[in-house]
């Protein structure tokens, strides 16, 4: 049987959702019998491949780089899963939204810096005016809220998706869990 191509992408998030994914522990080995991880911060592949079956996205869309990345991911993914509150709601990264980019940079790069405060280099990705959830930029097929979503929930959702079914994760996770 052909293996399902799975990718995981890390945008603006704390990596906690990836950690939770790893918390599926030995079950991941079982999963790998049906699944091939074709792109992920967990593996060493530099470019996002084509024809990916399932992509898990952790993190919100916060920079112009995130926008480019997520659009490419969407274009090459059949089922896009927003994994965790940052991807689903904006969560902590979006807490800067009421204050605006300027105040955020000011705070992070000047106020809270003791030595040599510096404006971030122009080569760094540029912050968007507002941090937004993934589905505000591209179509998302399935949402798994949680901060992070429990490993069991991720595992269940993934096994269902791998079997070509839409999982029902009601009561298995919640915002902030």
């Amino acid at each position: 049987m052909k293996k399902i191509k799975l990718a995981t992408v890390w945008l603006d998030g704390c990596s906690g959702c990836h950690m939770s994914f790893l918390d599926t522990d030995e079950r991941i080995l079982g999963l790998l019998e049906h699944v091939e991880i074709v792109y992920s911060p967990l593996v060493d592949i530099k470019t996002f491949p084509e024809n990916v079956d399932i992509t898990l996205i952790e993190g919100s869309v916060s920079t112009n780089e995130d926008v480019v990345k997520i659009k490419k991911v969407r274009a090459h993914t059949k089922t896009l899963v927003a994994l965790g509150d940052c991807a689903v709601t904006g969560n902590v990264p979006a807490m800067r939204n009421p204050f605006g980019v300027e105040a955020t940079i000011d705070r992070a790069y000047f106020h809270l810096v003791q030595h040599n405060p510096l404006t971030p280099s122009e080569y760094l990705p540029r912050l968007l005016d507002k941090v937004v959830p993934v589905h505000d930029v591209v179509k998302v097929d399935f949402h798994v809220p949680g901060c992070p979503p429990p490993a069991d929930t991720i595992y269940y959702a993934l096994t269902e998706l791998v079997r070509g079914r839409m999982p029902d994760i009601k009561l298995m996770t919640r915002f902030g869990k």
Binding site: C147, F175, G176
Partner: peptide, 10 residues
Amino acid sequence: NHVCSVCVAN
């Protein structure tokens, strides 16, 4: 601004 993950009521 309902950010459950950092809320005291979580």
